[in-house]
Each structure stands twice: as C-alpha cells, then as structure tokens.
Computed example of a mutant assay.
Amino acid sequence: MLNDASLAQTMVDVPFEYRHCCWFCGEPANQYFTFPHNAHLVINCIHPTLTVPSCNECSRFAYKATCDSIFAVHSQVKQSLIKHYHKDLAIGVNWTKQALEESEFEGGNFEGFKRSAWFIYDVAKTRVNFSSWHLELSGRHIEDYLADQKFTFDGVSYPNVDVAINHYSQIFKLDKVFLKQLVYQLSSDKFSRAVSLSRIHIDATEQEKRAILKQL
C-alpha cells in the first residue's frame, strides 16, 4: 500500500471529466493500481512507477497480469473483462434491443431477462470499449519514456537490460532467473556486480541463492 507521499509522486494526471473513473474500464474508481509492484518482478519497465485510479474488479485482473508495462497490463485487463463477461456480451450477438423489447417472455426469470438483458449487455460492452485517457506523469507523456529503456554495458548497447541478462546468462551459462533477481536487488547500475555474484555462486543451491539475495 502506497503512503500519501508516494501516491502523489506516482499518480498519473487525470483529466477532470475522468476524475472518478477507472482508467481501465471507465466505471467508478474506488482504489488505485500501481505498476510496477512487488507482486511481479519487473526490471526493464519502459516507464517510471505510476499509479492509475481503478475499480475493484479491474485491480484484481491487473495484479494477476505478468507484464513489463502498464500498456501490456491494460491489454490483459481488457482480455480478462471480455472473458469474464462473455455471456453478457453474447446477448448483443444473439439479440437486438428491439427484438428483446418485442419478445413474448412472460413470468419469472424470462420476464426478468427481457427487462434487464440489454442493460447488462450495454454495461459490459461499455466497459470493454472504454478508451482510457492518454497517460501523463507530472506533465510528461508516458510514451516519451520508450526512448529511455536502452541499456549500455561494457561498451555494448542493448535494447533493454533483459536482453543483456539473457546474453550474459548464455555466455557464462548462468542461472538467468538468479541473475535477474540480483540485478533487480542491486539495480541495473550495478550490473557488473550482479554478473560477478552470479558467476561466483554458479553452483549454489536454491536455498543458498535465496540467502544471498536476502543479504543484499
């Protein structure tokens, strides 16, 4: 959970007309989603840590996404909404509003379906179709950070630090997951030390690796 100071530093700029809306689906927002977060290890995110307003449901979907950017999280949340509400969205495939209104459903559940089905479909469709507002953090477009992800080490420029991790893991036959965890703990600025530690402890057990990470 972010404190007030952290929230102020990471909260994206929210247009006035969306001040109460979930960034993912447009429904009323009652919490916040921050990315990257501790539940998913990300060291090559193309943008700084940022926070968007969110509804409960979209937050749950977002925290399950294993992605490297808020834009990829957004895509997975939309996919999750479509999957979760596929029956509601199917109403619009199988019916028209006029056909429902003119249907002869009477009594019990059938009458309730006639009365509420189109509204249910419309809500689901609106959430899936919602166009999230353009992200800015302290007045800077988030897309501007795309150019900042290049990683240079030992005279070689890599598209991002993950590519460098893959490269050194292959060269020295290192445990890629362990090297990534070391880089995450130490920061990419200390990539050389992370590689050295990984090479020194190349034969370490999983328990020993966890102990090394804990000491950093």
Rank of each mutant, 00 (worst) to 15 (best):
T10P: 03
T34A: 03
L146H: 13
L7S: 06
D68G: 07
I165A: 10
K87D: 09
T10D: 06
S131H: 12
Y121H: 08
K125Q: 15
F33D: 01
Q79H: 10
R199T: 14
F16N: 07
L135T: 09
S198G: 06
L7G: 03
G108W: 13
Q31V: 01
C67G: 00
V123H: 07
R19F: 05
N129D: 15
A117S: 04
L197Y: 08
V161Q: 05
A204S: 12
I120Y: 04
H40S: 11
I200K: 14
S116M: 06
G139S: 04
Q207C: 00
T126M: 08
R60C: 03
K114Y: 07
Y32W: 14
C21W: 04
H47Q: 11
D148P: 03
S157G: 07
C58I: 05
L7H: 00
V156H: 15
D189E: 07
C67H: 11
V12D: 02
Y18M: 03
K87M: 00
V128T: 10
H134M: 13
V156W: 06
W133I: 00
E106Q: 13
H74V: 02
P36N: 00
P48I: 10
D13M: 01
D88F: 07
H201A: 11
K209W: 13
Q215D: 15
Q9F: 06
M11G: 01
K97W: 05
R115H: 09
F24V: 06
L137V: 03
Y121A: 01
D144G: 02
K180I: 08
L182K: 06
A117I: 10
T66V: 12
A5M: 05
I70E: 11
A194I: 01
S116F: 05
A5N: 09
F110C: 06
H86K: 14
I202H: 15
P36R: 08
S75E: 14
R210T: 01
A204E: 05
A62D: 00
C25D: 10
K190A: 13
V12M: 09
G108N: 11
S59Q: 04
L216W: 14
F172L: 09
R210L: 14
C22M: 12
G107N: 13
S69G: 02
A90H: 02
Q9R: 12
A90S: 07
L179F: 13
F35I: 00
P159N: 08
M1P: 08
D148G: 07
R115C: 00
E102R: 13
G108H: 05
Y18T: 04
T66Q: 10
N3T: 09
A72K: 15
K150N: 14
L213R: 08
S54T: 12
C25W: 04
C55I: 10
